[in-house]
Computed example of a mutant assay.
Amino acid sequence: MAVSVSAVVLLGIVVFVLIRGGYVRISHALACALLGFFLASTGAAPTITSAISTVTGWISSI
């Protein structure tokens, strides 16, 4: 749970900086957010969560 909250905060900051810098339009950020929201309700969500957990575990062991 702590990893997913941290990832959401980090990605939120990245998106905010990209929008402020003019690299990403608000409509593009909204489309990405909706994609993530709908992807979370599919059968791919457990696989993605497992992959993220594996990567964060690998990074923390370095």
Rank of each mutant, 00 (worst) to 15 (best):
Y23T: 06
Y23S: 09
V15K: 12
I13V: 14
I26R: 10
I52S: 05
A33Y: 02
A44N: 07
T54R: 14
V15G: 01
I52C: 01
V9F: 11
T49Q: 12
L39F: 13
A51I: 09
A51G: 09
S50K: 13
S41P: 00
G22H: 10
W58N: 08
G57S: 11
L35N: 02
I26G: 02
S41I: 03
L34C: 03
S60G: 08
G57R: 10
L35G: 02
A29I: 07
I52V: 15
T49V: 13
S53K: 13
L39Q: 03
L30W: 02
G36L: 12
C32K: 01
S41E: 06
T47E: 05
L10P: 00
G21Y: 09
I26D: 10
W58I: 08
T56H: 11
G43K: 09
I19D: 03
P46M: 14
L35P: 01
G36C: 11
S50P: 00
A45S: 15
G57E: 15
S41H: 07
P46R: 11
I52T: 13
V15M: 11
S60E: 15
S61D: 08
I13C: 06
V24W: 03
C32A: 11
W58G: 09
A29M: 05
G36P: 05
L18C: 05
V17N: 09
F38G: 04
S61Y: 08
L10I: 09
H28K: 04
I48T: 08
V9W: 04
H28M: 04
F38I: 06
G57M: 07
L11V: 13
V55I: 14
L18Q: 13
S41D: 06
G21T: 09
F38W: 10
L11Y: 13
Y23A: 10
V55A: 12
G12H: 05
A51L: 14
Y23K: 04
A44G: 04
S27E: 07
A45Y: 07
I59F: 15
